[in-house]
């Protein structure tokens, strides 16, 4: 199989002014097949969000390259869209105008982007809130807007940077289930970053474990649980075994850092 996204030997060092350079990632390899759901987990500060920004095209790696469908990426592109951790909604725009943002920047005609945005607002269950401003929404609703905005441009690849980290535990469970439903319908390729082992095991086809800083690929664990998955599946021994395997691998990294 030729992977759809292929990141090889990615390395990046930050050089802040007046401070020591920080080597964020070094020799990171990730491959994602078309339509696959891959999650990156690792100790905090291991550069997984940095890596996502490289794939998005906002950061340029010092070494290595990212290819999508065999083409090397050099900047942001229409086939990729990100769901941001802190939502990144424009506070002065309504829900509808926020969802329209990407289409507007692609110069899609007003009527068309309107129609498309309303469709996605319905898909994420926010019908009736089109005219609301972000500060009038709960955290979960805000991230639904973030998801709708990313999907509105119909990208091939959905990049998700700890999208549910700012939500409370129950909203989080709910959003995970809904994300799976949307993903199964749309069959997007998803690259997901989280520090929650449970979330990684529940959502993914494969989990890539990143080492402590400088981040590199430590291990890849295949999650061969049947789909569609539901909440009850999380209570099975099989699921818990997978969680344990991921945890033990990450624990080694945490101990490396602490020691």
């Amino acid at each position: 199989m030729i992977p759809y996204i292929r990141a090889r030997e990615i390395g990046l060092t930050f050089r802040p002014k007046n401070r020591e350079p920080v080597r964020a990632i070094k020799g990171l390899d990730v491959e994602v097949g078309r339509g696959e759901f891959v999650t990156l987990v690792g100790p905090s500060g291991c550069g997984k969000s940095t890596f996502l920004n490289i794939v998005l095209g906002l950061l340029r790696p010092d070494t290595g390259e990212v290819q999508i469908d065999g083409r090397r990426i050099t900047g942001p592109g229409p086939e990729r869209a990100m769901v941001f951790q802190e939502f990144g909604l424009l506070p002065w725009r309504t829900v509808l105008a926020n969802v329209e943002l990407g289409l507007e920047l692609r110069a899609v005609p007003a009527a068309e982007r309107h129609r498309r945005s309303l469709e996605l607002i319905q898909m994420v269950g926010l019908t009736g809130f089109e005219r609301h401003y972000p500060h009038e929404l709960s955290g979960g609703m805000k991230q639904r807007v973030g998801l709708a905005r990313a999907l509105a441009t119909d990208p091939e690849v959905l990049l998700m940077d700890e999208p549910f980290a700012a939500l409370d535990a129950q909203t989080r469970d709910l959003m995970q289930t809904e994300l799976l439903q949307i993903w199964e319908k749309s069959k997007k390729t998803v690259l997901f970053v989280t520090h929650s082992i449970e979330e990684a095991a529940y959502l993914s086809d494969r989990v890539v474990i990143i080492s402590a800083r400088p981040g590199r690929t430590k291990e890849i664990i295949k999650i061969d649980l049947p789909r569609p998955r539901d909440y009850e599946m999380r209570l099975t021994p099989q699921f818990n075994d997978l969680k344990l395997r991921i945890w033990e691998t990450i624990k080694e990294e945490l101990l490396v850092r602490a020691g």
């Binding site: 941001f84 990144g88 943002l101």
Partner: peptide, 29 residues
């Protein structure tokens, strides 16, 4: 201006002028 908002519009391939119009100017109003 929130860095994340600039990243958001940049991720949709916005130009410097579009960043100004869509994020920077409304934020300073």
């Amino acid at each position: 201006v929130n860095r994340v908002l600039i990243d958001v519009v940049r991720s949709f391939c916005a130009s410097e002028r579009q960043i100004m119009r869509i994020v920077v100017v409304p934020n300073s109003v």
